[in-house]
Design a protein around this nucleic acid. Sequence first.
DNA 1: TGGTTGATATCGCAA
DNA 2: TTGCGATGTCAACCA
Lengths: 223, 223
Amino acid sequence: MLVVLARCRVHYDGRAKSELGSGDRIIMVKPDGSFLVHQSKKREPVNWQPPGSFVSVEERNGKVILRSVRRKPKETLEVELEEIYLASLFRAEDYEELDLTGSEAEMAEMIFKNPELIEPGFRPLFREKPVGSGIVDILGKDNRGNLVILELKRRKADLHAVSQLKRYVEALGGEHGNVRGILVAPGLTSGARRLLEKEGLEFRKVQPPKRGEFKRGKQKTLF
Amino acid sequence: MLVVLARCRVHYDGRAKSELGSGDRIIMVKPDGSFLVHQSKKREPVNWQPPGSFVSVEERNGKVILRSVRRKPKETLEVELEEIYLASLFRAEDYEELDLTGSEAEMAEMIFKNPELIEPGFRPLFREKPVGSGIVDILGKDNRGNLVILELKRRKADLHAVSQLKRYVEALGGEHGNVRGILVAPGLTSGARRLLEKEGLEFRKVQPPKRGEFKRGKQKTLF
DNA sequence: TGGTTGATATCGCAA
DNA sequence: TTGCGATGTCAACCA
């Protein structure tokens, strides 16, 4: 990994196009081709290149230029180094991967193990089930035999989430009889609630579970 | 800005929760509170804290710990430094902002200046117009007086984009007469095309314009 | 490779 | 602060 602290200018052209005038930034080049230029604010790099890009060093008019090119889509990033304060090559040894909990995938596992979190008699049948237009999170049946579509969100659900659920319900509703759609999330935005009710869809309040923690309140521990 | 190259462990708890075992990483702490931990792969940090977080340094069991706390949502990130290879404090002077072109906003400007890019007689009336559920990109009328909703995408439009457009059309369709929905984008995914046709919505192929470049083909320069 | 969707998404804007 | 939508979103997963 290469880390450079420098005053520089940055030029990008590809899916979009950008220019960044002279200033002090941190430049990071990773062995997988990832290329990051960070200003002193925000979590996001001001310019970047994703993994798989190819980096090279040139000299133009006495200035060192870091150039990164990506094929498909064709994108070019050029960093014109004006003054280098520090450059460090770092042979990073790292065999560990992030272990994360509290994802939507874990919400789905929890519901398959405890279907009564949705309602008594709910039976989950499919996970990530492709339907006419899109992929349903969980497809199951209720105790009356109606098809039930669950759309899970690990955080407060918004209008997009309701549209998504509605799209799945309409994709299945044409072929089958009555199809229920249930949005499963820790909460709803005001607009999502309005649209959900207008469309005759339902909501179940469920928090994404975190491994190694106890749950409180209505949502009991799994087992 | 602080840059540290170190072998470390990382612990995060907040909206989700994660653990990362010992390995070499690059740690970056920005003056606005942004906190990044990068492994040697991918564009994304493996762990992070967004701007507005508060960083502190502690010592625990003879180990230095970088700790960043965020209020609302309550989130904590701890980096346990096991071996520090390099630590650098960088007083970055930077008064420049990114100048980017080729955005959806510029697509909208282009359409307001050249409405015939959509069709002869199209008249754009509102930009970012709130409707019952959501905000329409461009609301206008065609030469027969029908309401027309444009949903713009700077890249290939997907199912999500069609759902969004459909949501707006249905929000206005209830109150007004015939309402047309047009997806304006450089392309469509296969599924998006299927759904668009099924729903009786329309498509216009338009590329987002880049300032300082000439256009080719059907889409003429604006000048 | 294209399609689809999740994400500790982040970020900007408006009410 | 909440809601809403764009992003050069990125990244994972599947057909």
